[in-house]
């Protein structure tokens, strides 16, 4: 299996805080990789480094390499905007644009980059909403505001929005932490369907969720990658004692 995203000696900082300490991780193509670990261990920061969203924050900086299909996304020739179209992101809290309709939210990435052909846009809206398993629920209210639907629907709308720009990989930062179990199940089913086409990295606090959906699991602690491997192995027979303690809830 190929590796879609590879980090080499990746360090990330917030001002003086060293949030990620020399991480080397290989994210396999067309699979779901879960990143677990206690709060503040750098999970979110790690995936934000993978589409150059980390540097958006004030005082944030990155050293080391992140290779996307073998190309360093931090090289000086690489346009961060292009990186972000290739590697999409879904955030913890659903964040549809409140001034836009459901339709406009889905094609926001295309329209904001100047696409005007409505035949094309219509097709993308339908395809993306179907991919995100939201089409049947909203097809009669596409002109409603993006924030008028339920939280779970909003989160799937954000996934549809991310898919509309046809990324190669999708990063999800605790996408279900604000959702109820039913909405969570829908998103998990969705991720399962999506992995044929996309490389998916999901940060989660919910270990059952990691066990359910992920092919591979990475365990992080205090900014370091403690263990990475096939999910079954990490959960049932981890190499490190720390991993076992965290997974079995005997921590600290």
């Amino acid at each position: 299996m190929d590796d879609k995203i590879v980090t080499q000696g990746l360090n990330a900082y917030f001002g003086d805080v060293h949030a990620i300490k020399g991480i080397d991780i290989h994210i396999p193509s067309n699979a779901i990789t879960a990143i677990i670990g206690p709060s503040g261990c750098g999970k979110s920061t790690l995936i934000r480094c993978m589409n150059r969203m980390h540097e958006v924050m004030r005082g944030a900086r990155v050293t080391g390499k992140v290779l996307l299909d073998g190309q360093d996304i931090y090289s000086s020739q690489m346009d961060p905007v292009l990186v972000r179209t290739k590697v999409g992101m879904v955030f913890q809290k659903p964040n549809p644009f409140p001034t836009m309709s459901i339709y406009d939210n889905v094609v926001a990435g295309m329209r904001l980059n100047g696409e005007r052909n409505w035949r094309k846009l219509d097709a993308v809206v339908e395809r993306s909403l179907k991919l995100a398993a939201l089409w049947d629920e909203v097809k009669h209210q596409l002109d409603a505001s993006g924030v008028s639907i339920s939280g779970g629907q909003q989160q799937r709308l954000c996934i549809a929005r991310a898919l509309a720009v046809e990324p190669e990989a999708l990063l999800l930062d605790e996408p279900c932490s604000a959702l109820d179990p039913i909405a969570t199940a829908k998103i998990e089913d969705l991720l399962f369907d999506l992995k044929d086409k996309y490389t998916i990295v999901i940060v989660t606090h919910n270990m059952q969720q990691a066990a359910r959906v992920a092919d591979f699991t990475a365990f992080m602690y205090l900014g370091e990658l403690v263990e990475f491997g096939v999910t079954k192995k990490v959960f049932e027979n981890p190499d490190k004692e720390l991993t076992e303690k965290y997974i079995t809830g005997r921590f600290g």
């Binding site: 969203m53 905007v81 926001a108 904001l112 980059n113 991310a162």
Partner: peptide
């Protein structure tokens, strides 16, 4: 979150 949402879509 809206600013980040747009940037993450590859909007300049």
């Amino acid at each position: 979150s809206l600013r980040e949402g747009a940037l993450a879509l590859g909007v300049p």
